[in-house]
Computed example of a mutant assay.
Amino acid sequence: MSAKDCAHHHRERRKLYHRLFLILSSSIILILFLVFLIWLILRPTKPRFILQDATVYNFNAAAAAGGAATGLNLLTTNIQVTLASRNPNERIGIYYDRLDVYATYRGQQITLPTLLPVSYQGHKDVTIWSPFLNGNAVPVAPYLGVEISQDQNAGRVLINIRVDGRIRWKVGTFISGRYRLDANCPAYLSFGGENYSPNSILVGSTAKYQLVQNCHVDV
């Protein structure tokens, strides 16, 4: 075979590889475009969270040993909450890969995170969890000790139930990558006296609060 024939075959082979590359690239781009188009048409809506109730077993602030001069700086919190999540989408399912629930007071975390079970939520489905949130003798900033004292004297305290997690969307057989979910559920709790709230039910030394409070959700 002459050098001219070799060069000709080499050019033909390069053209064939180039065509195959263009076909493969075009197919991938078309598939991605169709997935994106379906995604835009379906327009996934973030899940809706509701804090239904909270049962307070302990919410107590105390001074650390030798810390009377600095006021209340240790907070013990034992609460059980009922959270409901609803998938508002008609054609999109939601995988809850990881959900941590914890309580905060004026921006500071006051309980350990409680891990909820991994679950899948179908179209228009509702999922309910009832986790326990516990924080024993958690140190708080000195200024928060003053705030806690004032709230307890007023008989009313605001804590926030936070949900931090990772979710995935399911459209047909397509499953998206992970998205971060953050939910913030305010809970106003009253403690006896003239400020005692009618939405709470005393059970022995505990109080159960019927809240039905919508949560702010970011995805």
Score class of each variant (00 low, 15 high):
3 A>R: 01
6 C>P: 00
7 A>Q: 15
10 H>F: 12
16 L>T: 06
20 L>A: 14
21 F>A: 15
26 S>W: 07
27 S>R: 03
30 L>M: 13
32 L>R: 04
32 L>H: 02
37 L>S: 14
37 L>I: 05
41 I>K: 06
47 P>S: 13
50 I>N: 13
52 Q>T: 08
55 T>E: 15
58 N>D: 14
62 A>W: 00
65 A>M: 07
69 A>N: 09
70 T>Q: 10
84 A>K: 09
84 A>E: 12
90 E>A: 12
94 I>N: 03
98 R>D: 11
99 L>F: 07
106 R>D: 13
116 L>R: 00
116 L>F: 02
116 L>P: 08
116 L>E: 09
123 H>M: 12
124 K>G: 08
133 L>P: 08
138 V>E: 06
141 A>V: 11
142 P>R: 03
147 E>G: 05
148 I>N: 04
153 N>T: 07
154 A>N: 13
155 G>P: 02
156 R>N: 12
157 V>G: 04
158 L>E: 11
160 N>H: 05
161 I>W: 01
162 R>Y: 03
165 G>H: 00
167 I>H: 01
168 R>E: 03
168 R>N: 01
171 V>R: 00
172 G>N: 07
176 S>K: 00
177 G>N: 05
179 Y>G: 05
181 L>C: 06
184 N>C: 10
188 Y>S: 13
192 G>Q: 08
198 P>S: 13
201 I>T: 15
204 G>Y: 07
209 Y>C: 11
213 Q>D: 15
215 C>L: 13
